[in-house]
């Protein structure tokens, strides 16, 4: 049950883009993965790399690492099962 100020029609909007691929071949819904022990949300790319969307870390120092900033392309991700 939702308790939010957002109108329900905005939360469950008509736009359904789940699983659709963007122009550059990346999946538009970010998936959870692990990079160097840090939880991330990313857009996996066909070559096995991924574009970082968001860090799920609570360590503020991780957010100061330029190689982990949103939009960076990273390698060596460990994908998590499920979303």
């Amino acid at each position: 049950m939702l308790y939010t100020i957002m109108p329900i029609e905005m939360v469950f909007g008509a736009e359904q883009s789940v699983g659709q691929n963007g122009v550059d071949g990346t999946v538009r819904v970010p998936v959870a993965a692990e990079l160097q022990g840090i939880g991330v949300l990313c857009h996996p790319m066909p070559d096995g790399s991924a574009r970082l969307e968001r860090l799920l870390s609570t360590d503020p120092a991780d957010f100061l690492r330029p190689e982990l900033s949103p939009g960076e392309v990273v390698y060596g991700l460990r994908m998590k099962v499920g979303r």
Binding site: T4, V11, E15, S17, P60
Partner: peptide, 27 residues
Amino acid sequence: APAPSSNLHVLNIIGQIEGHTVLPPQN
């Protein structure tokens, strides 16, 4: 570049708090 480790951690709670139902991706 060893970043100084912090004794404080930060939890960012943003957007919609998602529960048992996965919300559409525009959220």
